[in-house]
């Protein structure tokens, strides 16, 4: 079996004195979509930041394709085909839409470009219309599309979406979820973090529930849906 694209083994991390992640084991295989669930403050964003190398691991390992990358710099991890749409979107306000996209453009590790500019612009026609506008002239929904489109321009194998629909109007949310489904169908692996539990469960193959820095439950979305008590206790729905 091919090794996971990204894997954590016994991963611990935190800020200052406090430990937030208390030994997390998680793996994403090619083409797989994982919903990272849990209430606020349970460590979802901390886990993502540690996987990406923005926060150092206190103990445990991060592996990419079976190789230990625990101490590798963030930009090298990104070059391995791991792209992220961060919380807050991370759009460059002083760059135009086109500059935001082209700055990220890079073929994948095998030199292929499954997501050329034309495909990204077809996926997000709105970005083509706003091509010359600066990042800070976009609406929240447009910024979100730009953040996702820009991540796709790196031709990733794994796309991490952290709160991709936060702060958006319901119609725009639906559009973002439709796009995420399209990306899924293209065979890209995903880690999805989002507060809208139902929508997450409808796009992922597996849900992982994080409680106080530990994964307490892992399984198929229908198994989670079938257990209202579990949903209520850990997700508050």
């Amino acid at each position: 079996m091919t090794p996971p694209i990204l894997e954590a083994r016994g991963l611990q991390a935190g800020y200052g004195e406090g430990l937030v992640l208390r030994g997390v084991d998680i793996a994403v295989r090619p083409g797989e979509a994982i919903g990272l669930m849990g209430r606020n403050g349970m460590g979802k964003t901390t886990l993502i930041r540690t996987l990406l190398g923005q926060l150092p691991a206190r103990a445990g390992q991060v592996l990419a394709d079976g190789r230990d990358i625990t101490r590798e710099a963030t930009f090298r991890r990104a070059q391995r085909g791991i792209a992220v749409v961060p919380e807050g979107r991370g759009v460059f306000a002083s760059l135009s839409v086109m500059e935001n996209l082209l700055l990220a453009a890079r073929p994948d590790a095998d030199g292929r470009t499954p997501w050329p500019l034309e495909r990204v612009l077809t996926t997000f026609p709105r970005l083509a219309q706003r091509a010359r506008n600066r990042g800070d002239q976009l609406s929240g929904g447009e910024q979100q599309m730009l953040a996702i489109g820009r991540a796709l321009m790196t031709n990733p194998r794994l796309l991490i979406l952290d709160e991709a629909t936060e702060g958006l109007a319901p119609l725009l949310r639906d559009e973002i979820w439709r796009t995420i489904r399209t990306i899924r169908e293209a065979g890209l692996a995903c880690i999805v973090v989002d507060k809208t539990v139902g929508a997450v469960l409808s796009v992922v193959d597996r849900a992982e529930i994080l409680v106080k820095g530990s994964l307490v439950w892992s399984g198929r979305p229908d198994a989670l849906r079938a257990d209202p008590e579990l949903m209520h206790r850990h997700l508050g729905v």
Partner: peptide, 24 residues
Amino acid sequence: TRIGSAVRAAAEKPEMVDLLGLDA
């Protein structure tokens, strides 16, 4: 130029430049 937009991006959000796989 693309290098110029990388410089502007780095002045604005350095952590995002890293996340895009650019060598700061």
